[in-house]
């Protein structure tokens, strides 16, 4: 049980070198209520529910896709010092095992519907942008594209806020009711816009629309193409094969594809359709406005 530890009393000068400017000990609870989120839809929901009481922070800088974000120590320290850390769950935060967070304050907003997670089939690893290799393996994570799931996520956020700041619980509840009304409206709008597309073969440039397709019974197949990068001839051949068994006339894109791709698609009688997944903050407007814009574009297509 006991062992002799030799204690050296030699005092060594503790010259601290290479000190980085870092936030010191994070301790939640002091100061204004703070919540940190890991993507834009959560930021939007949290802001709506928090309604000015809760200061919501989204520590990712730049306009990349938060799904492929690798937070640095500063971002993690900001999370450690927050009262509530809202994650999307469904394998969205792949970095969560590589950082130290106070797990009791980490709220997985999709935890209430893990049984409705969708598996990603046909894994492809590919390269795009400055983020390097990434893969869409495992569970689909763009849950917020299904307004029903988004409402569940919002409920979880409201619950977390009410638990943490009970004094404001009724305000959070009111804010949630308003947000839920907006999401229900969005759901109706999407449903009516997509009714005409039910059963119609559709393509997607990226496998990120699984929850949307699932909710509105879309017959959607995905490739993994980048809007600003011309696919290889091999990819085009595979695309033609795909079209042969899945005769889609519309292909959903996260962003406007480059003119070369547009031209070649037109040759195959496939037209691009923009549907912003809104993982990061839109340049203007908000989640609802962005989704309404998506609805609007879908409506225009459905009219044809």
């Amino acid at each position: 049980m006991s062992r002799i530890t030799v204690v050296s009393f030699v005092a060594i000068c503790a010259c601290a070198g290479g000190d980085e400017p870092r936030a010191s000990t994070p301790e939640a609870g002091d100061g204004a209520p703070r919540a940190v989120v890991t993507n834009y839809p959560l930021e939007y929901f949290a802001q709506r529910i928090g309604g000015g009481v809760v200061q919501v922070e989204f520590p990712m800088a730049g306009d990349g896709d938060p799904a492929f974000w690798q937070p640095n120590a500063d971002a993690i320290l900001r999370m450690q010092s927050a009262d509530v850390i809202l994650t999307n769950g469904a394998t969205y935060e792949k970095w969560i095992d590589q950082v130290s967070l106070p797990m009791r304050r980490v709220i997985n907003t999709s935890a209430s519907f893990t049984d409705r997670y969708l598996e990603v089939v046909g894994t492809v690893t590919h390269t795009h942008g400055p983020e390097g290799d990434h893969s869409h393996e495992g569970t689909a994570f763009t849950t917020w594209l299904d307004p029903g799931l988004a409402a569940l996520q919002a409920e979880t956020i409201a619950e977390a806020f009410s638990g943490r700041w009970p004094a404001n619980a009724s305000a959070f509840q009111d804010n949630l009711t308003a947000l839920r009304a907006d999401l229900e409206q969005l759901d109706q709008d999407l449903r009516s816009a997509l009714t005409a597309m039910r059963g119609v073969p559709l393509l997607a440039s990226h496998p990120v629309y699984q929850y949307l397709a699932s909710r509105y019974a879309l017959d959607l197949e995905s490739v993994t193409w980048e809007p600003e990068e011309m696919p290889s001839e091999r990819a085009w051949r595979a695309f033609r094969d795909l079209l042969a068994r899945h005769p889609a006339r519309w292909m959903i894109w996260e962003a406007e594809p480059m003119p070369g791709i547009r031209t070649r698609l037109r040759e195959l009688d496939v037209r691009p359709l923009m549907f912003a997944p809104l993982g990061n903050r839109p340049t203007d407007g908000d989640y609802i406005a962005g989704m309404n814009a998506n609805v609007h574009r879908l409506g225009a297509v459905a009219a044809q």
Binding site: A16, R22, S24, T25, A73, Q80, V99, S100
Partner: peptide
């Protein structure tokens, strides 16, 4: 316990 210099561990390996 409070951190007196630097910060709390944040990343794996710290």
């Amino acid at each position: 316990l409070a951190v007196s210099r630097g910060g709390m561990f944040a990343m794996l390996g710290e």
